[in-house]
Simulated assay, not measured.
Amino acid sequence: MNLKELAKSVGVSIATVSKVLNHYPDVAESTRQKVLEAVAKTGYRLPLHAQSLIGQSRLIALVFASTLPIDLNNAYFSDVLDGLKKRASEMRCDLLLFSEQSFSMKEDYVARCRHYHTDGCIVIAGDPTAPALQRLVLSEIPCVGIDLELTGTSTGYVTCNQTQIGEIAAEYIHDRQYQKPGYLGPGTLISLERENGYRTVFEKYGYEIRQEWFVRTHDFFEFSGYFAMKEMLKQPELPRVIFAASDLLAIGAMKAIIETGRKVPEDIAVIGCDDILHASLCSPSLTTVRIDKGKLGIASIDMLFDLLNGRTTSPAFLMEPELIIRHSG
């Protein structure tokens, strides 16, 4: 059945049917209901943006707003996406990907959402103060951030307690009686929060914090960890243990340590964060602070549906991290 046949079956014009399917307000409620009932009865295939009118499905924009040189194939984000896609399928959602490369500077996320008639947004990564994200947060479009604190009238966010991640790593190091702690991580908000928790514990126990062992990396990836560790290994005195802001940084750091003939953890222990698959497969296997990344994806869809359905929900979902002890530290 096409649009003309649908209009004829209801006894209205094609223009009226189009108005109903495109959310125009100037249609009598009785007429609107007749059109929607006919859609449901005849099996007429609605455009994606109109399917939520009769409960067929919802269209959710997946906004990937990262300014770092990473993509959704990244080990961390791929696990988040697995959980997100699983829950979206269960909730009969279609996902539409937006990225910074997918539109011109004359458009933004709000314009794209309105163009495609999306019901809401899941925002992954990015800078919450960026103008494009600020416009999205301040719009009428419900949106949920993953590892991104969004604060608006119809927003929420899901994340792990980043400060607690650093605290868990530091408490473990203290329990193992390692001295001379070091840290590898970029200057992003997440990394700085992890570092802050890490430092706070050592300050509590009276450890000496050597700034030359707390190194800023370019990003969260192996090469950054490798080259940062190579530079640190040139110092006359070395840390006894390194906590890295990601497993990939930690794996890169271990490679640099081992290349110099040193042993992990006998000479320098290494602890990561995230618990990606490769953390259990590398040699030595990586001690890490685990984040249930799939659960973050699931929680983001659940929170967005709470917003869409008008249910009162906490603006934040904080997941508890977990220490996974293996052989690197």
Rank of each mutant, 00 (worst) to 15 (best):
I301K: 12
L318A: 02
G297K: 01
G297R: 01
A244P: 08
C273R: 05
K295F: 07
F305H: 11
S285A: 04
L281I: 14
S280Q: 05
F305P: 08
A269T: 07
A244L: 07
V289P: 12
K255H: 14
F317I: 11
D274H: 12
I251R: 13
S280E: 07
I258S: 03
P284I: 01
M319C: 05
K295C: 12
L248W: 05
L281F: 14
R290H: 15
D247Y: 12
D275S: 15
K295N: 14
L277K: 14
G294F: 09
T313M: 07
L318N: 04
C273T: 07
M303G: 00
A269Y: 02
R290L: 14
D292P: 07
I257S: 06
L308N: 04
G310E: 15
D292N: 05
F317N: 09
I242K: 08
S285I: 01
G272T: 06
T312Q: 09
G310Q: 15
L249V: 03
T287A: 06
D247I: 11
I298W: 07
I257E: 04
M303V: 07
S280M: 02
F243K: 07
V264K: 04
S300R: 13
N309H: 02
G310I: 13
G261S: 08
D274V: 13
L248Q: 06
D267L: 13
L249Y: 04
L307T: 04
L308K: 07
V270G: 00
T287C: 10
G272K: 02
C273E: 03
D292T: 03
V264E: 11
L281A: 13
S314P: 00
F305R: 10
T288G: 13
L249D: 03
L308E: 04
A279H: 07
N309P: 00
L249K: 03
I268K: 14
R311P: 05
P315W: 02
P265I: 09
I258N: 00
F243Q: 09
G297E: 07
C273P: 09
C273M: 08
E259M: 10
M319K: 03
A245M: 11
I301L: 11
S314Y: 05
D292A: 05
L304T: 03
S280K: 05
T260L: 00
I271C: 06
I298F: 06
A269S: 08
L304H: 01
P315L: 02
T312V: 05
C282V: 15
L308S: 08
I242S: 09
I258L: 15
D292L: 05
T288F: 09
P265S: 07
S300A: 15
A279M: 13
P265K: 09
G310P: 14
I301N: 10
M254G: 15
I258G: 06
I257R: 10
V270D: 01
D302C: 13
R311T: 08
M303Y: 03
